[in-house]
């Protein structure tokens, strides 16, 4: 279970999150929708441990463990995963090297045995097949020359390989064509389980047709201003944010 309490976050002296509360039980999928610039990626980055953001107040715990005290790599080992809104290109580092390094780094920290080359290859083959990722992509440098959709699929691949307890998907649907959207959603759904929770950030209700959320939240003005069932996403899509923001004010 991930618990975020009264979270205040500043960047360069500007307060972006102003007392955000969010609790996601294990096995549940929550969605966050909110206007551009409302702080969705800020929340994602703070959860993953980006040091450009100052947490001035509040707490984040995963299964009772204080996440804010940890380095990004420790959070990954604990089971936190962020699918980036803008995945980073790393020239010169091959996909296979990258995945091997990441998987074994996490396994090592979790006290599990590291996978040998063959074990990794098998795991990689299986996951890339499920996500329709070509072998050619695996031979390239991380995200270098990948299309927008390929980058997003690559994020889901990493998630599948690292088996997190809690995954944040920051606009993983943007830039995906209809077929890719289905592939990615299937990939996420395949990972849904009782001991894994998700936070899905999106602007479009469409994704939520594929990945059915348990709860939908509206983030505006640095806080969750409304929460509800999947129907909330439909209402937002129809009416836009203005009504909700007025209502909350």
């Amino acid at each position: 279970m991930i618990e975020i309490k009264d979270l205040h976050v500043e960047i360069e002296g500007k307060e972006i999150l102003k007392g955000l509360d969010l609790t996601i039980e294990s096995g549940k999928v929550h969605a966050i929708m909110g206007p551009n610039g409302s702080g969705k990626s800020t929340l994602s980055n703070v959860i993953a441990g980006h040091d450009a953001y100052d947490v001035t107040k509040g707490s984040i715990t995963l299964d009772g463990e204080d996440v804010l005290e940890m380095e990004p790599e420790e959070r990954a080992a604990l089971g936190i995963f962020l699918a980036f809104q803008y995945p980073v290109e790393i020239p010169g580092v091959q996909m296979t090297t990258f995945l091997k390094t990441a998987v074994n780094a996490v396994r090592k920290q979790r006290g599990e045995e590291e996978l040998d080359a063959l074990g990794l290859l098998k795991l990689m083959k299986q996951k890339t097949k499920e996500l329709s990722i070509s072998d050619d992509m695996m031979k390239r440098a991380v995200n270098v020359g990948f299309s927008g959709g390929e980058k997003k699929r690559n994020e889901v691949l990493q998630m599948a390989m690292l088996e997190p307890k809690f995954a944040v998907l920051d606009e993983t649907d943007s830039g995906l064509d209809i077929d890719a959207l289905k592939i990615v959603a299937d990939g996420v759904n395949a990972l849904r389980s009782d001991n894994r929770s998700f936070l899905v950030i999106t602007h479009y209700q469409r994704l939520l047709d594929y990945i059915k959320p348990d709860v939908v939240h509206v983030l505006a003005g640095g806080k969750i201003i409304k929460s509800g069932g999947p129907e909330l996403a439909h209402a937002l899509e129809e009416k836009g944010y203005a009504d909700f923001i007025d209502e909350a004010a």
Binding site: G49, H50, E73, R75, A76, V88, A105
Partner: peptide, 29 residues
């Protein structure tokens, strides 16, 4: 590249190792 460093760390790669990987890839070419 701090973004690349954070990306690697967010995937569980310890900072020192992540830096090493970025340096190796830089000279690898």
């Amino acid at each position: 590249d701090e973004d690349a460093l954070f990306y690697l760390r967010s995937r569980g790669v310890p900072e020192k190792e992540a830096r090493g990987l970025l340096i190796q890839s830089f000279i690898g070419e």
